[in-house]
Design a protein around this nucleic acid. Sequence first.
DNA 1: AATCCACTTAAACAATCGTTTGATCAAAGC
DNA 2: GCTTTGATCAAACGATTGTTTAAGTGGATT
Lengths: 214, 214
Amino acid sequence: MMNQKVKSGKKSPGRARPTSESRQRIIDAAVKLFARHGYAGTGMRELAAEAGVNLAMINYFFGSKKGLLKELLDEFFAGYLEVTRKQLEGDRDALEKLDGFIQAAVAYFAGRRDHLVVVITELPHDDPEVIDHKAAWGRQMMRLLGKEICTPLSEQRDWPVTPLLLGPLLTSMMASRFLFAPISDRLKDGAPDTDTGDYARTLSRIIREGLMPR
Amino acid sequence: MMNQKVKSGKKSPGRARPTSESRQRIIDAAVKLFARHGYAGTGMRELAAEAGVNLAMINYFFGSKKGLLKELLDEFFAGYLEVTRKQLEGDRDALEKLDGFIQAAVAYFAGRRDHLVVVITELPHDDPEVIDHKAAWGRQMMRLLGKEICTPLSEQRDWPVTPLLLGPLLTSMMASRFLFAPISDRLKDGAPDTDTGDYARTLSRIIREGLMPR
DNA sequence: AATCCACTTAAACAATCGTTTGATCAAAGC
DNA sequence: GCTTTGATCAAACGATTGTTTAAGTGGATT
């Protein structure tokens, strides 16, 4: 048993209501543990201990364990959607937009690897309380991709690509590196990670030109 | 409470030891429930009820809940590896091999959607008892991809593609459709699924030529 | 007939699960 | 000074968790 008393020494003494740091510590611990053991595989006591917080604080801040999960998902989705909007809206060429999107999204994923793992691993599960959040997010994502990428691209091509194909496909491609990380780390012996920017550029090129020479 | 008595009427009367059908029923129920609620999110009583089998039978056949999971993973991995080997080994052109692999793997995935979901969602978790299984499988996969695809392809190209990039990337691309299925089904209103063969051909084309016209 | 064997069962095991309660503390508002 | 309010705590709640046990089934073997 570690001492789970919170050292409040860092709390600035003059501030009125610093909106308790415990809340953020719970989120950080949840992202870390959910990514490693899964949502259902993580106990609330284990979570509270990792966050250095009393068990009851989780329900106090988030209502329930599932409320905490929904907060994590919404947080990631909102950021992902914002990144996407910033890259896709505007009047650049569709291909340039796609490049910018891949670059920005991979950077976003790389900065939140654990967050990403939680989202992906919880995606296929059909919890009725959570699945609407995902669907609502997916709808906005598909609309953006359809209007800014698929439609303009279809005019210069001979075969159509629907957003319902492209959305999951792009997301999966960009996420694959981080999803397989625990296994990849075991296979490559000590070799350092390729730069994340390189990874994004490689994906961009494959998306544009494919794997073939020329 | 449903009646979980097994109707043994189908058991062929003359056979010596039909190797109890209960074992397979447990596997089928596990694949279904693990895919919908996750491994940790599925209770053994719920599982036994779905399989129409006594609770203790799970531990009797598989030793433990985790033993059941390992069996599911191994089963899928073995099939995936066999499909891969059949398509990649031989002396055809590397690009033809890649096409055949995508076609066969997508068909394999489509025939075992729930199985695939379980594997993917459990992939990133770091359970020390399970992660070695995944790593051993990944190693064989990488070796095949490296020798049959990456190496011959690198000779006709100006930039290299390592199996550690290609393996996770291809698997993620082929799996994306099935991973996002619960969400996709909510977004497309009643529109019937595109044919799985079409999906494989689309992926093949994107991999070869990219998204660009020409 | 007796033994063996794979399979099946109900019942119980200790442990852990997510959640709730009521008390306490410090700072803010009146 | 008194009350309010947000935060934190230890303790307990009933329910459910994965696993084990000991008994019992019926068919095949000896």
